[in-house]
Structures are given as C-alpha cells and as structure tokens.
Amino acid sequence: MEEIVFGSNIMQLLIALILVSTFMILGSTRLYSCVRAFGIQSFLLACVAGIVAFSTGKIDIYIVAFLTLAIKAALIPYIFIYIIREIKVKREIDLYVNISPSLIIGGILVVISYYLIRSINLITELSSFALSASMSLVSIGLFIMISRKKAIMQMLGILIMENGLFLGAISLTYGMPLLVELGIFFDVLIGVLIMGILIFRINKTFETIDTDMLKTLIG
C-alpha cells in the first residue's frame, strides 16, 4: 500500500521542494527571507501530510495536516516576525561559516544522510527517499544552529529539525496516534513561545541577541 501512495510523483516533487526550501534558508543572509522560507517549508509539509491522509483515508492525519498548516505555516512565522520587529534587531544574520561553504556543507550532509539510510536498507525505495530527506533536514537544521550567530537563527534551526522529524514520522509510519501528535505540536508551540521570551530577556540584558556575547560561563 505504501508503494502506491509514495509511487505518485507528486509526493517526490513535494519532498524535493522541501529540500529546496531548506537550502533557501541555508543560503539567505536576511532574517525575513529565512522566516519566509521556513513558512513555505511548513506549508509543503502540510501538503505531504494531506496527501498521505487522503490516500490512507484516516481522519486523524487530516487533523495533523491541518494543524501543521495552522501552527507551523502560519502562527510560528508570525511569531518570528513579531519578535524581529519588536527587538528592532538589524536584519542580516552574521555567520561563522559564510554562505557558499555552508551551502556546500548542506549538500554533503544530504549525500551522507542518503548514503546512511541506504546502508540501513530496510525500507522500500521511495520511502527511503523521504527518510533520507528527513535525516538531511535534521542535520542541516543542526548545522544552521552551529554556524549562525544570531539567537533567532538557532530557534529556526530547531524548528527545521522538528520539521525533518515530522517528515520522517509521516513517511515511516503515517503519523503517530493522534494524542501523541497533538502533544508534539503543543510542545513545539510552547517551545517557540518560551524561546521568544528568552530572546526578549537576552535582548534586554545583553542589548544584542548575538550569541557571541554569551561566553561568560567558562570552565
């Protein structure tokens, strides 16, 4: 039954687009463009969930798809924009690893995760593509957190990893039981809220949200 659902090339297209959106985030130097790319990525994710729900006909996956759309595609980007406007932080992101090398590294990460998943060779051809995409999403998210100085970008990195996981969950097991999915969404939302509060507090005490300043606690 998986083959049919995943056989359709729409799904492959969507997953490819998700990968493209991650690279957009990797490549952008301005905060707004990153947030926008994140919004697109979540939207695409919601579509993937929708298609899976449509093909398996289970109601709770529909709810999950709708929730992704509502929270990840709409609410969280809005929170980001609110934070950026509130803190009046300068737009561009200063980075440890500038754009071109980080793009190359992103590419290498995708290849590695593809190779890793293939060597596990336990799932059918196509869904392994979805799993490797989710693995690469997770690793690129982590890479973004490591290479970007701005605190907001680290928040964004976490959310990208979250999306990668969600994609993996969908492709592997068509979503967890509803209760659990709700819990995860709820947690992610609160996480973003609290990180926002933290960023405001950092901004108030350090007058900048550049994590380079956060180096006092040593040894």
Binding site: Q154, R201, K204, T205, L214, L217
Partner: peptide
C-alpha cells in the same frame, strides 16, 4: 533572577 549569567545559562540549557 534577571542576571546576565542566568539568562545565558537558560538560553544554552534551552537550546
């Protein structure tokens, strides 16, 4: 406590 070091610790802890 809105001390600098506790905010930094909280952020690192969180991330």
């Amino acid at each position: 406590y809105s001390k600098k070091s506790s905010v930094e610790a909280a952020w690192k802890y969180m991330i």
